[in-house]
Design a protein around this nucleic acid. Sequence first.
DNA 1: TGTTAGCACTCAACTCTTGAGAGTGCTAAC
DNA 2: GTTAGCACTCTCAAGAGTTGAGTGCTAACA
Lengths: 344, 344
Amino acid sequence: MQMDERKQKVLWAIIQDYVSTAEPVGSRTLARKYDIGVSPATIRNEMSDLEEMGYIEQPHTSAGRIPSDFGYRYFVDCLMQREALQEYQRQQIRHTLIDKLQEVNMLMQQTTTILSQLTNYTAIVLGPQVGKTTFQRIQLIPIQPNKVVVVVVTSAGIMESRIIDVPDSVSADDLQLVADLINSELAGQTMKQVRNSLYRNLSQLLKKQKQVLVQSLELIDQAMQAEREEQVYLAGTLNIFKQPEFKDVEKIQNLLGILEEHDLVRNLLRGVESEGVSIKIGTENHHEGVRNCSMITATYQVDGEVLGVIGLLGPTRMEYSKSLAVVENLTEQLSVALKRLFGR
Amino acid sequence: MQMDERKQKVLWAIIQDYVSTAEPVGSRTLARKYDIGVSPATIRNEMSDLEEMGYIEQPHTSAGRIPSDFGYRYFVDCLMQREALQEYQRQQIRHTLIDKLQEVNMLMQQTTTILSQLTNYTAIVLGPQVGKTTFQRIQLIPIQPNKVVVVVVTSAGIMESRIIDVPDSVSADDLQLVADLINSELAGQTMKQVRNSLYRNLSQLLKKQKQVLVQSLELIDQAMQAEREEQVYLAGTLNIFKQPEFKDVEKIQNLLGILEEHDLVRNLLRGVESEGVSIKIGTENHHEGVRNCSMITATYQVDGEVLGVIGLLGPTRMEYSKSLAVVENLTEQLSVALKRLFGR
DNA sequence: TGTTAGCACTCAACTCTTGAGAGTGCTAAC
DNA sequence: GTTAGCACTCTCAAGAGTTGAGTGCTAACA
């Protein structure tokens, strides 16, 4: 059997209707609401064909049809007309990102929030991957007798800090010495490189300040550890409740549970194309907890280098066109904002 | 009508049973499962009295009785026997808090998590109130030409950081000058005092480095702003799903919505006694979204000064005795851990 | 006078039935 | 190839009947 123009028209209409009503679509409805130009009976025949071809399915005998994952896939690949973003939405994004650009964390959180607001789905963003950013400086700041704050700064402006205890015998000069040493040895290296040269080159150099040194290095190590796992930002998790397919408590609990496990979320987003926009529909997702969800993801980059991913999680019955427009525009503007923040 | 010993016995049994089963309790059940020593008929009479006195109520005519908020209140005040924590739970708390004490954030998050795990309710913790901690240092760390990381450290080891742009004309020495100036002027003052003396004393001192100075002060200001609002830590929000009284999607959505609004959460916890342990039952809570919840809260302190609150949110049908034991022990151990971290 | 057994009554929850409504597939006619 | 007509299927909602848990009242009992 062949996909012809009328079949496309019918499939398009079915998806259109189902996306907006969440109810199975019957032949009469299609004939009435959409301009297909043939009678319900003919549409029925076409629908029967479409079902046989796998594009749509019937929840039960006497109900209308709903699109299958395969049907959505065809829609996304062949039928969907690209939508441009409304000017006011574009504006809204620009506003949100420009105001907050002083700090990466805030910028990412804002990005996530605006994404969920504009789409009414759940937004997931993976923060800049810092294996690629470089170690910049360590700073030892005495705050009380015997107490020192250690701050690790990366080129992304992300940092880890910790209070450590030091023995009386360590003076402010000693601290400076340690800091200078670490800084001169390691500055500008990527986190991976730091990790490699860390213990080899440094640990035998100092005796007296050993404890401080060790603890500082531990923190750097930890910073790397922590940041190898990209930060997960979430927003609009409660938008799930708006979807009629999630009126069931179990399903909501399930999905919220997954979203709480940031490791899972990371894996979910990592499993997509290495660059650019990707749409995963229903069972195309590897994780089985999101088999009835679709995910639109896009990478963002600075100076041509992919830094992270932004993603949108909704029901398979998703407004693909609109959502895609938002995701695309947002990555673009996010990339710009990030470049301003720490691009070369 | 007077509360006598037998009525107490009956009320106690009703609460006991309802807390564990979540089903209305009938007279037969009571006679069978609890050792009251009289027949169901007599118990019925007592229950009738208890209802008249307001301690219990009937969801509908042909159902058993359930405790009213007033009944729980009487239970908590007069009937409940204090429970000691199991040794292994005590241990578990100690373990959790000792390992992580390098950093306030982590410590607080761990506290919250262990609280929810031990109780199976939702744990809410307000981070140390920093209006009372003092400004310690500011540090300006150049990371790239024209870019400086500003770090503000408070005595609590909490900090705010930001990347700012500086003009070419500002040298490393200039930065040092600004930092030294701010540090010498403001170090050791409480955040409130800093706020007051900030613009008055400093802004006219420098010309060339004015921009850096202004932006640094802005950050300090912001740090104060941000930290006047204590950090909210949550854990076990999904425990709500375990409670049969929340099998309704609307109610869950409602509660999760409230928990997402940290301002609301703060208000909720602030509305309790200024010191020590407090139990708020159902309608005793001011916020109407938690009218069918109970909250156990306790303040934690260092050197006699109240720093924050830890709280437990569950259904009114709560295991008050057990939960209370956990909350009390946890505040105690948290106070110790915090004292080690930044006590005098 | 307090306690208990017995009994009529109430009400939610469950099951079963029924009818309406939406939708389909098939057939025959156009 | 398209359409009208019709029998059929299945869900959903409403209604009726039944069951079971629980109560309140009354009268008898210790």
